[in-house]
Amino acid sequence: MSGKLHIGINDVLKAKSRIRQFVHATPVFTSSTFDQRYGRRFYFKAENLQKTGSFKARGALNAVTALLESNRSIPGVVTHSSGNHGQALAWAAQIRGLKCAVVAPNTSPTVKLDAIRGYGADVVICEPTPISRQETCDRVANDKGYHFVPPYDDLDVIAGQGTIAVEFLEQIPQLDAILVPTSGGGMVAGIAVAAKSIKPDIRVFIVEPNGKDVERSLVAGERLWPNPPRVLDTIADGIRLQQLGHVTWPIIQEVVDKQVFTVNNEQIIDGMKFAFERMKLVVEAASGAGVAAAMSERMHNMDASICHVGVILCGGNTDIEHLPWYT
Score class of each variant (00 low, 15 high):
3 G>K: 11
4 K>F: 06
5 L>H: 03
7 I>E: 00
9 I>A: 00
10 N>D: 14
10 N>I: 08
10 N>M: 10
12 V>E: 00
15 A>F: 12
22 F>C: 11
27 P>S: 14
28 V>D: 02
30 T>E: 13
36 Q>I: 10
39 G>P: 11
40 R>Y: 06
40 R>G: 01
41 R>H: 14
42 F>H: 04
42 F>Y: 14
43 Y>E: 07
45 K>E: 04
47 E>W: 03
50 Q>T: 02
50 Q>K: 07
51 K>Q: 11
53 G>E: 05
54 S>K: 00
63 A>Q: 08
64 V>N: 04
65 T>Q: 15
65 T>W: 09
66 A>V: 00
75 P>V: 04
75 P>W: 06
78 V>N: 02
83 G>L: 06
96 R>K: 15
96 R>F: 03
98 L>Y: 04
99 K>Y: 00
103 V>H: 01
105 P>D: 07
109 P>F: 13
116 I>T: 15
117 R>W: 05
122 D>Y: 06
124 V>W: 03
129 T>P: 06
131 I>L: 07
132 S>N: 12
135 E>V: 14
137 C>R: 03
137 C>I: 02
145 G>V: 12
149 V>Q: 09
152 Y>I: 08
153 D>G: 06
153 D>N: 14
153 D>V: 09
155 L>W: 09
157 V>D: 09
158 I>M: 15
159 A>R: 02
160 G>P: 09
162 G>I: 09
163 T>L: 01
164 I>K: 02
168 F>S: 13
171 Q>C: 05
179 L>Y: 08
184 G>N: 12
187 M>I: 15
188 V>T: 11
189 A>Y: 05
190 G>I: 11
193 V>K: 04
197 S>E: 13
197 S>F: 03
200 P>D: 12
204 V>F: 04
206 I>S: 09
209 P>Q: 01
209 P>R: 01
209 P>W: 03
212 K>H: 07
219 V>Q: 10
219 V>E: 06
221 G>I: 05
223 R>D: 08
224 L>V: 04
226 P>W: 07
231 V>F: 00
232 L>V: 09
232 L>Y: 10
235 I>G: 08
235 I>M: 12
238 G>S: 10
241 L>C: 07
242 Q>T: 00
242 Q>M: 07
242 Q>G: 03
244 L>T: 03
246 H>D: 13
249 W>K: 03
251 I>P: 02
251 I>Q: 05
253 Q>G: 09
255 V>F: 13
255 V>R: 11
258 K>H: 14
258 K>M: 11
259 Q>N: 11
263 V>P: 07
267 Q>C: 06
274 F>H: 10
275 A>R: 07
279 M>S: 05
280 K>A: 05
284 E>K: 13
288 G>D: 01
289 A>Y: 03
290 G>C: 10
290 G>P: 07
293 A>W: 00
296 S>D: 10
300 H>R: 12
301 N>T: 04
302 M>H: 00
303 D>C: 01
304 A>Y: 09
306 I>R: 02
310 G>E: 02
313 L>G: 06
314 C>W: 05
315 G>H: 02
316 G>S: 06
317 N>K: 01
318 T>E: 04
319 D>P: 08
320 I>Q: 13
322 H>P: 13
324 P>Y: 10
324 P>T: 08
325 W>C: 12
327 T>W: 13
